[in-house]
Nucleic acid binder design. Structure first.
Lengths: 346, 346
DNA sequence: AACAGAATTGTAAACGATTACATCTCTTAG
DNA sequence: CTAAGAGATGTAATCGTTTACAATTCTGTT
């Protein structure tokens, strides 16, 4: 009742294992008649090659590891989907690793890599300064996606977070806003840091003085509730911001909630800008103005970079995909002409 | 520069491979001094056992396959997280398989199973009548989660979809609604079918005549846009429903959108009930009334059932976890007393 | 007819781990 | 003092592939 092996197939077909193997892999010359015999034997026995024997012999697993901080944030879904599509088209399976931003967990997965369970990895949970990864990248094909380790020469694909943040703030300024708040997050992702820099840089360029009270930070996991809290703190000030730039859509949702709780209308009393353009950013009212990241494409691109590296090409390249400002209902000019009301077709 | 093997460790420690293996696996007696020598050698060389050699010899992979229709629907995220947590605690890694509800893709993954890439699987993309799976379940440990194949004696964990749907409809009726619409989906998931039956059963019990025009169906993927369309059709009727029961939260979001487009207020003019209670169901306004599924627990439970099966226990058990009616802002009594307005603290 | 080379097939050695069995060294009981 | 048994270690077979190399048959050329 055990799964049939190659030698059973060989016996069934009345030839040697080597020939069966040649038929399976279509390398080496095999006569048409023999090929037929082998194929029929395979069919009869329902033979499937044992992957461990193959891996052991070939020294490769046809598996790639995809390491993601969590999978409850909808931001990652299309990235994973993109990676999955191109990898599975190339015959690879993906092994999903959810780190929960936990150091021990990350280490565990790195070990999976080291004992050759996977041929390469796409990493999305990378701190700005990640020694483990630099080390690992010298031994195995690695591609970083969205986040990356600053110092290292490991391939990565991401958007230009600095410019994107600058653009968001400039757009708000162009609408007339000068009291522009910032909601960041307490994590060590480079994207977070760059968006913060972008925010400040834009203010400087626009000669808007930096108001320390206008910067606040949500939890490291971008969670809704911490977004509500951070926005709440910003909005409690005597001279509250008229616009809020949030480093993620979920945080922007939190800001919306905080505004509602205080009777502030969005966008009439407060403009809110998110980041990412996750799928549901346009499913509720007011639809969120945000910076769109080409998530699916980022995942797909990361996957093809990795495929190339696994075929022996050198890594280390940095690729930036274009972001896009998506203007929807959560932003409005300031001050808004209140003479006639601007309702969101409610 | 290649990864060190067990025999290199043996040479380094000046003993045989058998002893090294014994130390690694902590089985068989090894003297304390020898153990020390081995551990030091392992340390010096940075040895990690080659997983393929081990799998080949042991006949198991310590991997389980998690098959999911897609990963962009936030419904699956906590299930995956739950499965991941219990599986990785037991030393298993998960291989994520995204089928996109595609037959060929499913088949591909089943093959992964057959060539022993995984020891077992958790399946979430299962049609009511799935021959492939029944067949596969006779050969390998399998657990179905959320969806399941009706005929087969394959383990599954889910909620009681029939009763949940009945409850939703009864609750709406208890609020005074009699014109209750249904938005289903054109797929072959058993949950969809059971919820539909539950809807009809509740109407019958309440002696509300079934109005064919009050049933409509969104696409098979529960997508937002098809939800908007289906709800649109329902609401265009001369005597439109005053409440809508949707078989998923995303569809309910679509219904909200369709209502907005027609100037209908929710819940004043229309009550909407979703299903699942995905994370963001309470992040926007109006917060969605819905049936909550204990997703994380379902994933975790499926994982432990699978673990037991992989240890040799028989499968075939059906487990139902309790759902929960979550009343929020998208439902209201009917007819609503309009004398004083019921505003959602806008 | 003889031979070179191509085409086809087979034999056996890897790949790196686990483990049944054999061997050897000590204790300890009789 | 000897036999038995426990404890520690080693030898070699095994898991199921792939593939270098050898062996055989076939083809066409001289």
């Amino acid at each position: 009742m055990r799964a049939p092996t190659i030698s059973q197939v060989a016996k069934e077909a009345g030839i040697s294992v080597a020939t069966v193997s040649r038929v399976m892999n279509q390398k080496g010359a095999v006569s048409p008649e023999t090929t037929q015999k082998v194929l029929q034997a395979i069919e009869r026995l329902g033979y499937q090659p044992n992957i461990w024997g193959r891996n052991l012999r070939r020294g490769e697993s046809q598996v790639v590891l995809v390491m993601v901080p969590n999978v409850t944030n909808p931001y990652y879904a299309p990235i994973i989907a993109g990676a999955e599509d191109t990898l599975s088209a190339a015959g690879y399976s993906i092994m999903l690793c959810i780190t929960n931003m936990d150091r021990a967990r990350r280490r565990h997965y790195v070990d999976l890599m080291r004992n050759r369970r996977a041929d390469g990895a796409i990493l999305m949970d990378i701190s700005v300064d990640d020694r483990d990864m630099v080390q690992l990248s010298e031994e195995y094909p690695l591609v970083q996606c969205c986040e990356y380790c600053e110092s290292a020469a490991i391939s990565h694909v991401s958007i230009d977070n600095f410019s994107a943040a600058r653009e968001a703030v400039s757009r708000l300024a162009a609408l007339g806003h000068t009291r522009i708040g910032y909601i960041g997050a307490k994590n060590s992702f480079i994207s977070t840091a760059l968006r913060h820099k972008g925010y400040r840089s834009a203010l400087e360029e626009l000669s808007i003085p930096l108001h320390p009270g206008y910067e606040d930070f949500a939890g490291r996991d971008y969670s809704f509730s911490t977004g509500v809290e951070a926005a709440g703190r910003l909005l409690e000030q005597k001279e509250r911001p008229t616009a809020l730039f949030c480093v993620s859509d979920v945080l922007a949702l939190g800001a919306l909630q905080a505004a509602r709780e205080r009777g502030l209308r969005v966008p009439e009393d407060l403009s809110v800008v998110g980041f990412d353009d996750v799928e549901y950013a346009s499913m509720f009212q007011p639809r969120l103005t945000t910076i769109r990241q080409p998530c699916y494409r980022m995942g797909a691109l990361a996957a093809s970079l990795l495929l190339r590296q696994m075929q022996g090409e050198a890594g280390g390249q940095a690729m930036f995909l274009p972001h896009e400002w998506v203007s929807r209902d959560s932003t409005a000019p300031w001050p808004l002409n209140h003479t006639f009301s601007v309702s969101n077709d409610l």
